[in-house]
Design a binder for these strands. Structure first.
Length: 577
RNA sequence: GCGCCCGUAGCUCAGUCGGAUAGAGCACCAGAUUCCUAAUCUGGGGGUCACAGGUUCGAAUCCUGUCGGGCGCGCCA
């Protein structure tokens, strides 16, 4: 709908060659905004104020010239200068009725932009280590990432979703040895379970489920363990377990364990409505030589040097505070080397825009990986990292204590069981990613008017019910026929609701381009409020045919927009509640 | 110490590229149901946008500083 105004304005400016020079710096589209106060019309442009300085004219004079050049248009009722130089546009009722028709015609496609080929987006999110079940913090990454993916798709971008599985490195050995020790316990062997091992109950489950062929009992694992340092203890245990089992058997145990956890994460996310196009294995970077390839490219760039036996990347050349090691003195490649290789690989697979949605603790990583990409010939600007801040749960007004280390944390599954998928998806994206989120379990659970999820869903269910009642009264409604009756929609409440509906495409655009799903959340709440307010004051099934049909069209259009919006959020749009 | 995020009503939060009189919900107060779910609606009180400067036609929004809160710093993963 905004395009109506921008077209009118563009046409008017075309008739003012004297402003052509200064206009070119100010895209018309960007000067138009919705008005807050209905007395200011439907849209306002501040273009005259922006042009005032470069054109060396007063804003109101410019506005007057522009208005003189606006041709009469059936979509437009009137235009006026207001305040310091705003141009206010009052659109005609016909324009709003036309938009309503568009909503009904386009249905699930309303608010979506045409698919484009570029830029190809790779959206990486969650990527939690496969060392245990997802907790509530990962849930936010999942909900946020999935919703951003939906938004980008709605905005027409080709987007693929990817989960990076950190299945390499020392933590996997720790996982392997943890499972082995639990297995030993199940065989009646006493263990002194190490502090640095994974202590959760799920480790026992894995130990009892996996194929244990070839695994043997060893009783001397705990003899003469180094004292004190828990890291040394676990290293020793890993080494002894590998020796006792042989690396083949130990690897099999480790691979089964991580795959079990990874599959569990995949199930958990799928139940949460979060799915991925690719599960990318960190191990594959090594087995397929991609780390070496990337390091070779990096070395060729001249951005790698040796010091103290280690290989360092000149991260400071790219704005990092210090250079970073890529290969340690002991020959082991660092996690950072994997990250560089992984992102290099993403670009080589043909993605133009890399979006990483990571936990807030990954800050610091951005400059480094961006620097790596830049050194390898790709612009660091094509890597966008959104850091998602932490989640605090509240129950009965009290913060729920959680520590990852002590294994005392609330899992995503527990949260989903407690509040349901809809509430969880909704609340997780109700704030911007860079804001801390206080998740109030009591509000999320309440089936009452203080729960915005139910408030919005109820609007959808209420509308669905109207059509049920219609059938019960043996009345029919036809969307094509109803389009001829829309001029019956004239009240203030109807205007407000139509205005809200027409904003939907703008909201999708805004939310997608800023990766800010909270705009959609707040919009849907406002839309539901406009609907409830109007509906409560207008019972219309027994109205004359034309009025009834027009109002049914308004209901149907509202239902379309609410359903489309909720679908993007991953929240269900129920027919009854 | 350095870096990042934040500070808006009693509480939880919106506030788009700098726009017109800073908005919602909850809570509080007063009302609405012979009705197409009251999981709803109508009305009311409630603000030094942390503080101080600066930029300009215009600042909650941009810049600088101060105060307050959260998070992160590794040849860990």
């Amino acid at each position: 709908m905004k395009t109506i105004v921008s077209q009118i304005l563009t046409n008017a400016l075309a008739g003012l060659p004297e402003l052509a020079d200064v206009v070119s710096d100010h895209p018309v589209e960007g000067t138009i905004e919705r008005t807050r106060d209905p007395s200011h019309g439907d849209f306002a442009s501040n273009i005259a104020m922006r042009l005032a300085k470069p054109a060396r004219m007063s804003p109101r004079d410019i506005a007057a010239k522009i208005i003189e050049n606006i041709a009469t248009n059936e979509q437009l009722d009137s235009v006026e200068i207001a305040g310091p130089g705003f141009i206010n546009f009052h659109l005609s009722a016909a324009a709003f009725h036309g938009e309503l028709g568009t909503i009904l015609d386009q249905g699930v496609c309303y608010g979506r932009q045409e698919a484009r080929d570029q830029p190809r987006v790779l959206l990486e999110f969650v990527s939690a280590n496969p060392t245990g079940p997802l907790h509530v913090g990962h849930g936010r990454l999942a909900a946020f990432g999935a919703t951003v993916g939906n938004l980008l798709e709605a905005a027409g971008y080709p987007v693929e979703r990817e989960y990076y599985v950190n299945d390499a490195g020392r933590q996997m050995d720790i996982l392997g040895v943890s499972v082995y020790l639990r297995w030993l316990e199940s065989q009646g062997t006493e263990t002194a379970f190490p502090e640095a091992g994974y202590r959760g109950d799920y480790i026992r489950d894995i130990a009892s489920e996996i194929d244990t062929g070839g695994i043997v009992v060893t009783s001397n694992l705990f003899d003469d363990l180094p004292e004190g340092d828990k890291e040394e203890v676990i290293e020793t245990l890993i080494a002894r377990a590998k020796e006792a089992l042989g690396s083949g058997v130990f690897n099999k145990l480790r691979q089964q364990s991580l795959e079990s956890i990874r599959a569990d994460i995949e199930d958990d996310l799928a139940e949460f409505g979060v799915t991925f196009d690719h599960w990318f294995s960190e191990q594959s970077l090594t087995t397929e030589g991609r780390i070496d390839d990337a390091l070779a490219v990096l070395e060729k760039s001249g951005m790698v040097y040796e010091k103290d036996g280690a290989k360092w990347f000149r991260a400071t050349e790219f704005g990092d505070e210090k250079d970073r090691v890529v290969v340690r003195a002991n020959g082991v490649k660092t996690y950072f080397a994997s990250d560089i290789a992984y992102h290099f690989d993403k670009r080589k697979r043909g993605f133009d825009l890399l979006i990483d949605i990571l936990g807030a603790d990954h800050h610091g990583y951005i400059t480094r990986v961006g620097g790596g990409l830049a050194a390898m010939g790709y612009s660091a600007k094509d890597l966008v990292v959104d850091l998602v801040q932490f989640v605090a749960l509240y129950r009965d007004g009290e913060k729920v204590a959680m520590t990852t280390r002590g294994g005392k944390f609330i899992t995503l599954r527990q949260l989903r069981d407690e509040v349901g998928n809809d509430a969880a998806r909704f609340f997780y994206v109700s704030r911007g990613h860079d804001q801390h989120l206080d998740f109030d379990l009591d509000v999320a659970k309440s089936e009452s008017n203080d729960n915005p999820v139910y408030y919005i869903q109820y609007a959808h269910a209420r509308i669905s019910n109207v059509f049920v009642k219609l059938a019960e009264k043996s009345l029919a409604w036809d969307k094509k026929f109803a389009r001829d009756t829309l001029s019956a929609l004239t009240s203030e409440g109807e205007k407000a609701l139509m205005t809200a509906l027409s904003r939907y495409p703008e909201i999708i655009d805004l939310a997608a381009n800023n990766r800010a799903p909270q705009h959609l959340v707040h919009y849907l709440r406002d839309l539901a409020a406009d609907f409830h307010s109007w509906y409560n004051n207008n019972k219309f099934i027994d109205d004359p045919d034309e009025v009834r049909d027009a109002r049914l069209a308004l209901c149907a259009a509202t239902r379309v927009v609410i359903a489309n919006g909720l679908t993007i959020l991953g929240v269900s749009a129920p027919e009854t509640m």
